[in-house]
């Protein structure tokens, strides 16, 4: 659909009202996402948006595009199958820290190894919100929740450090209290030709009083201007600092997306095996 004029952020709304609690950080992320889509002039019919289960995984219901709300923790492989099957699509995955780093963690290093051109937006609230306030893989140790009444016994995962360690080709962190900065990160991530990860600090005002806009603001700081995002070791070191940096931690310039590797493989098989001819292949069994 050739758009006569550029779509505005509001044109990406579906008319379905978000079901999130008032004050939820996901609103800020959603608005930044609408703006990024508008800025990049993504045509809605070329957008394929995937999610799993959780509050943030409801996001696709509110975005004009072809959307897929799947099962818990499996949005990454579903999105990969879609991107490989139609590389023309802009493929984005949204979901929470429980979806991505608890039930679905197993898929993370593997999608990173393959590096399809997919953007993964994690709305990280350090809590299970949809199931009403249990401990999450990113919650700090000692945190009191409905499933840890005397405090959590487990150390949290560091999503940014994990993705850099896995060698993702684009790793960033944003804050839903900074919609402008977040929009810029989404634009960069979607434009990156490979697997791009954006960890979005997105407070849950209902179940996580330990991570609020107020508590985050003093901790959050943009990455220093001299941070070299092509330096993976430096990026990893920044990810381990107590300061909660936002911005692009790591961005590998040489990035061959998985779907391009598959296209090369197809060409190579035709080169060696000739044009596809099923009857001829069957005759080989004579």
């Amino acid at each position: 659909m050739p758009t006569a004029e550029k779509l505005k952020p509001n044109d990406y709304k579906t008319g379905r009202e978000p079901i999130w609690c008032p004050g939820c950080g996901d609103f800020g992320a959603l608005n930044a996402f609408y703006q990024a889509l508008s800025e990049l002039e993504v045509e809605p019919h070329m957008l394929a948006l995937f999610s799993g289960i959780g509050c943030s995984s409801r996001l696709p219901y509110f975005v004009n595009g072809y959307c897929h709300h799947g099962v818990h923790g499996r949005a990454l492989p579903a999105a990969m199958g879609a991107k490989l099957s139609n590389p023309e699509l802009t493929v984005v995955v949204t979901g929470g820290d429980g979806d991505g780093f608890s039930i679905g963690t197993g898929h993370v290093p593997h999608i990173v190894r393959r590096n399809p051109d997919i953007t993964y937006i994690m709305l990280d609230n350090e809590i299970y919100g949809l199931t009403k306030g249990q401990i999450a893989p990113t919650s700090p140790v000692g945190m009191t929740t409905s499933s840890t009444p005397l405090g959590s016994l487990e150390d949290p995962l560091n999503p940014v450090a994990l993705l850099i360690a896995c060698n993702a080709s684009f790793v960033a962190r944003g804050f839903s209290g900074d919609p402008k900065g977040l929009k810029d990160l989404f634009v960069k991530a979607i434009s990156h030709p490979g697997f791009a990860f954006v960890d979005v600090l997105s407070p849950c005002p209902t179940f996580n009083m330990d991570m609020t806009y107020q508590s985050l603001r003093p901790k959050v700081s943009p990455l220093p201007e001299d941070h070299d995002s092509s330096d993976r070791v430096a990026a990893f070191a920044r990810a381990l600092e107590p300061v909660v940096y936002t911005g692009v931690f790591y961005h590998r310039r040489e990035s061959i997306p998985y779907e391009k590797r598959h296209a090369s493989l197809r060409a190579k098989q035709v080169e060696y095996g000739g044009q596809p001819d099923l009857a001829a292949l069957i005759r080989k069994f004579r």
């Binding site: 394929a48 099962v71 499996r74 990454l76 579903a78 999105a79 199958g81 699509l89 898929h107």
Partner: peptide, 12 residues
Amino acid sequence: SAMASCIGASFV
């Protein structure tokens, strides 16, 4: 993952 990616491929 194999099953999920098939569903993604079918979706498109």
